[in-house]
């Protein structure tokens, strides 16, 4: 068997694969954070909780109503997105003019409530979601084995990321959003319903997180605490990439997943920490982040 740097190719490409999958989730989550940050100028600390809600919804929809995977993949993000809009309308909107620290703390409180409530109901051990029939198995690429579902995760995540980029950069709704990022008061003066746009933006960002959760349900263990650890990693990813651009968020997310995957091969003990170390290095060399515009 061929080896690279003393590691079998199959192991290396397998970890690369896992890295790209983790990276897809980082990309989806940091994309949602960036979209919300763009217009609302807040960091959504409840983002991990929304990811968790997306996954829990997918599982419960199947267990309670027998809703199949494809419908849940669409329905769970919509349900959680609507929930996000409700949160924005009743809570976040009330502190819109205040210091951004407060919105961060408010969303942190919301995350604590959601995580705590669901932990009490379902426990921390996690729920099981069986893999949809058509995704069982995989194909042999010659140098590695590729499970179908993992391939699907990458394709779906990239499609959604591209769709989001296209919507924001190339459509009229996206141009409103970008204009709102620049100067929302002026936009309101032009007769655009900015508060509605803000609600929808928050809902959309949350939807992205919930979509990531629904996508994760068959491969990761679904539990109320699944969101909090990944969120901190995504924060580091966001700091590394900077929130300057949509494409930047996606590229950084994928890149960090790959970096993490390779670390698992060469120095397993450091795999949990490597993204944070990259963050420190980036901050020391280029404080505004790889794609960041602001100082």
């Amino acid at each position: 068997m061929t080896e690279i740097l003393g590691v079998p190719v199959a192991v290396l490409s397998g970890q690369l694969m896992l890295g790209i999958i983790n990276g897809s989730f980082y990309a989806l989550l940091s994309l949602g954070l960036a979209v919300i940050f763009g217009l609302l100028k807040i960091i959504n600390f409840a983002h991990g909780a929304m990811y968790m809600l997306g996954a829990m919804c997918t599982v419960l929809m199947f267990d309670v109503f027998g809703i199949n995977y494809w419908v849940a993949l669409f329905l769970a993000p919509v349900v959680v997105g609507c929930f996000g809009i409700v949160l924005e309308y009743f809570l976040l909107r009330r502190i819109a003019g205040q210091d951004h620290i407060y919105s961060l703390l408010l969303t942190f409180g919301i995350a604590l409530i959601l995580q705590g409530l669901l932990t009490n109901i379902y426990g921390v051990s996690g729920l099981r979601y069986s893999m949809p029939e058509m995704f069982r198995g995989g194909m042999n690429l010659g140098f590695m084995f590729l499970p179908y579902y993992r391939a699907w995760v990458i394709v779906a995540a990239l499609l959604v990321c591209f769709g989001t980029w296209f919507m924001i950069e190339k459509t009229r709704l996206g141009s409103y959003l970008r204009a709102g990022t620049e100067d929302s008061q002026l936009m309101q003066g032009f007769g655009i319903n900015v508060p509605l746009l803000i609600s929808l933006t928050y809902g959309f960002g949350v939807m992205l997180a919930a979509f990531a959760g629904a996508l994760a349900a068959p491969i990761y263990s679904v539990s109320p605490v699944m969101g909090s650890n990944i969120l901190i990693v995504v924060f580091a990813v966001v700091v590394i990439g900077g929130m300057g651009s949509i494409a930047g968020a996606v590229i950084t997310g994928l890149m960090m997943g790959v970096v993490e995957g390779f670390t698992k091969v060469f120095y397993p003990e450091g795999s949990a920490a490597v993204i944070f170390l990259v963050m420190v290095v980036v901050l020391l060399i280029r404080p505004s982040g790889l794609f960041g515009k602001e100082a």
């Binding site: 502190i95 407060y102 703390l105 408010l106 409180g109 409530i113």
Partner: peptide, 20 residues
């Protein structure tokens, strides 16, 4: 006893919204 987290979260939300 199991409700400490949600209660702390609720206090967080209330403090931020009502008396900063």
């Amino acid at each position: 006893g199991d409700w400490v987290d949600p209660i702390l979260g609720a206090i967080f939300v209330l403090t931020v919204l009502a008396f900063r």
